[in-house]
Amino acid sequence: MSHSPLTPAELAARVDHTLLKPESTPADVAALAEEADELGVYSICVSPSMLPVALPAGSTLKIATVCGFPSGKHHSQIKAAEAAHSVADGAHEVDMVINLGAVKAGEWEDVEADIAAVRAAAPHPTVLKVIIESAALTDDEIVAACRASESAGADFVKTSTGFHPAGGASVHAVELMAATVGGRLGVKASGGVRTAADALAMIAAGATRLGLSGTASVLAGLDGEGAPDSADAGGY
């Protein structure tokens, strides 16, 4: 049996342990935080209305949330207000969705301004990740969306919400995004990353962070480099 190039602890340190199901309850979020602490992941990612989150005693977990999620079709002022509210409620990281319609229309100044509004509302040290919904974009649009994100001051570009019918992360998209940002920004792969093999492929392609909902089964699959599992990844 071949072995993973990463230990479970090394992979866990790159994971945003995610729960974004609309029906999630406070008890679900509390369980997520407990599991995340046990798994040694980098952060938990929850919906903004679930903030603030009480972490287990002594936990070093970061708290991430989403903004303009999942459609991205909110007014920039609303996205900015949502981001500011989330930071006030304890979020260390904000994953915002761009306006895909503006991308498709080639309105790049508007795309950049939308991101910049959220950046201004959630300044550093808050980490800003920009979800470009790569499966719904052409290669040229992916490149341009990454460039707009960088110009607007983002810290990461992220593939997917996990809720778009076009699909989630792909190795090709991650490679293209990583090549475009050239190490100046992080790259987060999310949406459909359900096995250890998926996770390792995304990291090999250039992902520096992973959004996972089935984190435990992904980590458990590392020794076999991701034998297929049937874990329900919860649409993320």
Rank of each mutant, 00 (worst) to 15 (best):
S2I: 09
S4A: 06
L6E: 01
T7L: 02
P8F: 14
E10I: 05
L20P: 10
L20F: 01
E23Q: 15
E23I: 08
S24M: 04
S24V: 10
T25D: 02
E35N: 09
E35G: 00
A36S: 15
V41H: 11
M50L: 14
L55D: 01
L61V: 00
A64N: 12
G68P: 12
F69I: 13
P70F: 15
G72P: 12
H75Y: 15
A81Q: 12
A81M: 13
V87A: 02
V87E: 02
M96H: 07
M96K: 03
I98Y: 09
L100A: 13
G106H: 11
V111R: 03
D114N: 10
I115G: 00
P123R: 04
P123V: 01
T126G: 03
I132P: 02
A135L: 06
A136I: 04
A136F: 09
D140P: 01
I142K: 15
S151I: 04
A152N: 08
A154Y: 13
D155I: 11
T161P: 11
G167K: 01
H172G: 04
L176I: 07
G182E: 07
R184E: 15
R184N: 14
V187W: 09
S190V: 01
S190N: 01
G191Q: 07
A199F: 00
M202L: 07
M202V: 05
I203R: 05
A204F: 08
R209L: 03
A220C: 08
E225H: 00
S230F: 14
A233Q: 04
G234D: 04
